[in-house]
């Protein structure tokens, strides 16, 4: 038990419940519509509204932008429902805007170059037993851990 308290000082239940709900959402999307619901693609797909560049006008972007936006709207709705009923109150991050801006830009670039993020490779890719996705998860987890620990040690 002590080990569990050390590894999970905030408890286990909310992590497991939340993870299963995420999995249920991705599974339901697949069983009902056949769509593979990673989240990073919407960041390229929305550019098909604003840019005539051939990359953004590919079918995989402009033909999927509608459902990807509806799916993204669902994410916001789900979080709003949680805010309304959990009684936890709003949580506003104290991570600095510089880190959000720099990290966000690099993460957005990398996720689209590698065609997947934590949900695209991590959930959908691994669940599809795709070798590149499994390796991608190991690579991005390692890179993120090293980066975060370096930043923490630099203060």
């Amino acid at each position: 038990m002590e080990l569990i308290d050390t590894l999970f000082p905030l408890g286990l239940a909310h992590y497991i419940t939340g993870g299963l709900l995420i999995g249920l959402g991705v599974s339901l999307l697949f069983v009902l519509t056949g769509l593979v619901g990673g989240m990073s693609s919407v960041y390229s797909a929305v550019w098909s509204f604003f840019s005539k560049a051939s990359f953004f006008q590919q079918e995989k972007h402009f033909k999927t932008r509608q459902w990807r936006l509806v799916y993204a709207a669902g994410l916001i709705l789900g979080a709003f429902i949680w805010l309304s009923f959990s009684g936890s109150g709003m949580v506003v991050t104290s991570v600095s805007w510089e880190r959000l801006a720099l990290g966000g830009f690099i993460a957005g670039f990398g996720a689209r170059l590698g065609n997947g993020c934590t949900s695209g490779h991590g959930i959908c890719g691994v669940a599809s037993l795709s070798l590149p996705s499994v390796l991608a998860v190991l690579v991005f987890l390692s890179a993120a851990i090293i980066t975060a620990q370096l930043i923490a040690s630099l203060g």
Partner: peptide, 10 residues
Amino acid sequence: SGTLFGLGLS
């Protein structure tokens, strides 16, 4: 499906 995903993330 997205709503469940967002609820889970929250």
